[in-house]
């Protein structure tokens, strides 16, 4: 029971971290050569970490919480985009991490590209217009942020693991066969 409480507290912490990331992202000035309204998706780092430590369902829960936050603060369309982008990219990253031995940059870029493509698709269905005009910009953006996500993950994993040990998450895991 105590373990379960700790786990929920940990997920809450991660969700808060994800929201902080999206919030910080919104504060960045729009880059001149990129389409306005495109989001970097840095909170992918958090959902990715959650997927591995507490499981895919809690990771998706975090993506949903993030979507609701976007819905409340930035409106319906931003909420829908964040929700689709968040859930799909979390799933894709989890699959790449779980089923392949791909490098971390591939995990990050895969997630970021999914995130951006989901945004584009949402835009396409909302306006039924040539939203794909933005595709090349969004893909380049995806590669850049994906690399950033991968790098941050590589650097931040050891300290994050230390934190998670305090929440008793470590005990839920087993030995991996990957070594």
């Amino acid at each position: 029971m105590k373990l379960e409480t700790r786990r929920i507290a940990f997920i809450g912490l991660l969700a808060a971290l994800a929201i902080v990331f999206s919030f910080l992202e919104g504060l960045l000035p729009p880059l001149p050569f990129l389409p306005h309204g495109a989001k970097l998706g840095l909170s992918n780092i958090v959902t990715m970490f959650a997927a591995g430590t507490t499981g895919i369902f809690s990771a998706i829960a975090i993506a949903v919480i993030k979507g609701i936050f976007a819905f409340l603060t930035r409106g319906v369309t931003a909420g829908i985009m964040s929700l689709f982008g968040g859930i799909l990219s979390t799933l894709v990253m989890w699959i790449i991490l779980k089923k392949t031995k791909a490098s971390l940059s591939v995990v990050g870029v895969g997630g970021a590209l999914t995130h951006n493509l989901a945004q584009l698709t949402t835009a396409f269905f909302l306006t039924r217009a040539a939203a794909f005009y933005y595709a090349p910009f969004m893909l380049i953006l995806g590669v850049i942020t994906g690399l950033l996500t991968g790098a941050v993950l590589k650097i931040s994993l050891p300290p994050l693991m230390k934190v998670s040990k305090h929440f008793g998450i470590e005990k839920a895991g087993g030995k991996t066969k990957h070594e």
Binding site: T100, K101, A102, S103, V106, V109, G110
Partner: peptide
């Protein structure tokens, strides 16, 4: 991006 484990 499918088989990145094949390190050159």
């Amino acid at each position: 991006m499918e088989n990145p484990e094949t390190n050159i």
